[in-house]
């Protein structure tokens, strides 16, 4: 068995293995696909309220769909590896990376506007809380919320610093709250950036009006915070209309119109659970379809319908 012939055949095999392996691969390099390529996470790619429904409603198809982890769709879009991507509407990276949310003009995505939830008993005791918190709500549009999130996620500031700065700029607090003479009330929140920011804002405006406030922000996931509110361990937290509609009120079909969703949730939650929904924000932390700002400007794309038209006309990616 130790002979030259064997060696030759061995070398031949290793070499041909290598050739077969590599040549097979090099033929079709699927790395950078040109054209209208869409980046999506795994879930959105198959959900009926995700990519399949979106393209059906708006009547267009992307040239290709790249599936990847949710967190990296923003970077893929910024780096030009795809032309369009999905993400969450108020993510800080959207403004930081010069991306733009396309308006969902046919109301395809379920709505997730945010609103302070207060227990009815607390509001009966301190009715002024409603006015105090409602003062913040109109300030929070998508652009604002997104850049506040970016200040925490990208610039690595602390949520309470960012919240304080924002409220000071808008003249809602003086920076020196008075001695508390009311309360205590407890403010909770979920544990991601946007929720921490909103929680801190609620705490600060309440303190400004003389409340003693317990900081219970960053409690945990949706279910935990909601349970804490129902169990009277906290008095106030910010919830999203779509989340309440589907998770807490246990409806199956999403509502895609903000006012309708808010009205239904407010009515049902007050009646069934004694939870009062104050005003709702303009920002809507739902799925979003994003493009690079430059591309969108160049092609005059503002809404998803515009994008559908551009793609259907066969316009190339800038």
């Amino acid at each position: 068995m130790v002979d030259g012939k064997l060696f030759k055949s061995f070398a031949l095999v290793v070499l041909s293995l290598f050739m077969a392996f590599s040549l097979f691969g090099c033929g079709n390099d699927a790395d950078v696909s040109d054209g209208w390529v869409f980046a999506t996470d795994h879930e959105y790619s198959v959900r009926p309220d995700g990519y399949p429904g979106l393209t059906e409603l708006y009547g267009f198809e992307f040239d290709d769909v790249e599936i990847m982890d949710l967190g990296i769709t923003y970077g893929a879009l910024r780096d030009g590896q795809v032309a369009v991507a999905m993400g969450f509407a108020t993510d800080g990276r959207i403004s930081a990376f010069d991306l733009v949310n396309l308006e969902d003009d046919k109301y395809f995505h379920p709505v997730y506007n945010c609103s302070p939830n207060v227990r009815e008993e607390v509001l009966d005791e301190y009715p002024e809380i409603a006015d105090i918190l409602n003062e913040i709500v109109p300030l929070l549009d998508e652009q604002t919320m997104s850049s506040l999130n970016a200040a925490v996620d990208i610039d690595e500031k602390e949520p309470d610093e960012v919240a304080e700065e924002f409220l000071l700029d808008n003249g809602l607090i003086s920076g020196a709250p008075p001695e508390p003479d009311k309360g205590p009330v407890s403010v909770g929140s979920k544990e991601f950036t946007e929720q921490l920011l909103l929680g801190q804002m609620a705490i600060m405006v309440l303190e400004e009006e003389g409340f003693e406030v317990d900081d219970d922000t960053g409690l945990g996931g949706t279910a935990i915070v909601r349970e804490a509110l129902e169990g009277e361990e906290i008095d106030i937290y910010w919830e999203y209309t779509g989340t309440a509609w589907m998770a807490h009120l246990e409806h199956e079909d999403p509502i895609t119109e903000p006012q309708e969703c808010y009205d239904k949730v407010r009515e049902e939650d007050l009646e069934n659970n004694g939870i009062v929904w104050l005003d709702y924000t303009d920002f809507n932390n739902t799925y979003t379809i994003m493009m690079r700002q430059d591309d969108a400007d160049e092609l005059g794309i503002v809404t998803i319908s515009d994008l559908a038209d551009v793609i259907n006309e066969g316009t190339p990616v800038p």
Partner: peptide
């Protein structure tokens, strides 16, 4: 998948 595996293995063997 095959594409990924073959290119990586070919280069790794080489």
């Amino acid at each position: 998948h095959v594409h990924l595996v073959f290119v990586a293995l070919g280069l790794a063997t080489a």
